[in-house]
Nucleic acid binder design. Structure first.
Lengths: 210, 210
DNA sequence: TTTATACAGTAACATCAGTTACATAGTTTT
DNA sequence: AAAACTATGTAACTGATGTTACTGTATAAA
């Protein structure tokens, strides 16, 4: 666990902090597709992501979903922090996009580390900043762009996060993430294929030149 | 300034912190409509809002706007914090919605206070949490609701923030905030009037029963 | 007072996106 | 192999929203 931690967080945290994390943290491996947190959950520990990607979703009352952003190596969930500290319920759902490795740290330590470690303070603030930035980008995409452009952004981001030009999802699954209908996704994907930007197959598609 | 600070923040901060703020902070009064920060600005101090309201906007490349949320008494701008610490440019625009009073604190103190004052840490985290929450609510409104519902939410929130059932804006101004067109706003407002929920006038409207 | 400007009302139309319905083609189950 | 199921393709339609154009009216400027 120390090696993993140092590889991902060594450039951020002092050795003393790394040691503390090793002492109280628990190492976890999460399989792809596993629901790690749901809306309304109370959370008592904070994830430090070592590898893999976690997708963060928002849901309305009727169960309609929207993909907010992905967490990746070196990220943590600022929502979790905020929730833990304020004893609040989670406002989002987290699902492993790929197999993921992470270290869970009990929230009780957060207050202490924020006080004692400059590197931890920086990490936490940076994390908030990144998350707010991503929320703004998501908002921009939705407000200022139309579905065809949003779909392209979605495919690009998904390929980047998975490090794979093949997107292994059905049109229905993509529709859920973008909060639209399967027919709309099929229609737009077909257009992209006709433009030579992607190649469609059953259950997956390949990015050619987006 | 001490009285103002204590009235708005006395229940949050220890006396020692209040004293520090008084020493390094500068009191400011901002007139309604004043642009306090723009996208791309570098920021070197952080506002603690004492009275009034600040509207926070996002803008795309073409200059199209969208209202994100309002800051009110007891709020601070988490974006500013994040920007200051990371030496980043502002991602948002801030305009005084009403006359406002606030205390500007140099960012240089933030690191120190975060280390030394538990109440400051709580305040900062709470602030991030609130802002993320509001961003999510804004996103929800846009993704899950249609323009008529968004308009109603907008009018309610504006009335609450201004503490006034009379909304002193033209249809065009409302359209900018919601990122739609004047014609659409006029259309929907007229419907609301026909339902007896509002009363329309030139340059303003009155909420009757929303 | 006349003119110009800003604001609001409304009709007609275009477009994007969501819905319904059905066809076709793989895949899995029996 | 037949049946059932799942994913995709596509047409036809609907509805919400954005656009253009023109009107009337209140307000401000000349």
């Amino acid at each position: 666990m120390i090696q993993e931690l140092k590889a991902s967080y060594g450039h951020l945290f002092e050795d003393a902090l790394i040691n503390e994390i090793v002492q109280v943290g628990t190492y976890k491996e999460i399989p792809e597709g596993h629901k790690m947190m749901d809306i309304g959950d109370y959370v008592k520990s904070m994830p430090l992501l070592i590898s893999g990607a976690i997708k963060i979703l928002r849901e309305d009352n009727e169960g309609d979903e929207l993909l907010l952003y992905y967490l990746e190596k070196g990220d943590t969930c600022s929502m979790t922090m905020a929730c833990c500290l304020g004893q609040q319920k989670s406002m989002i759902r987290a699902i492993a996009e790929t197999d993921a490795k992470l270290i869970m740290v009990p929230v009780t330590k957060m207050e202490e580390w924020t006080k004692n470690y400059k590197s931890w303070r920086n990490f936490v603030f940076e994390s908030y900043h990144n998350r707010i930035n991503e929320l703004l980008t998501t908002l921009d995409n939705i407000v200022f762009y139309q579905m065809d452009e949003r779909l392209i952004q979605y495919l690009k981001e998904k390929a980047r996060v998975n490090n794979d030009d093949i997107i292994k999802n059905t049109h229905q699954e993509i529709a859920y993430d973008l909060h639209t209908s399967r027919v709309v996704v099929s229609r737009l994907l077909k257009k992209l294929e006709q433009l030579g930007k992607i190649k469609l197959h059953r259950n997956y598609l390949k990015i050619v030149n987006l």
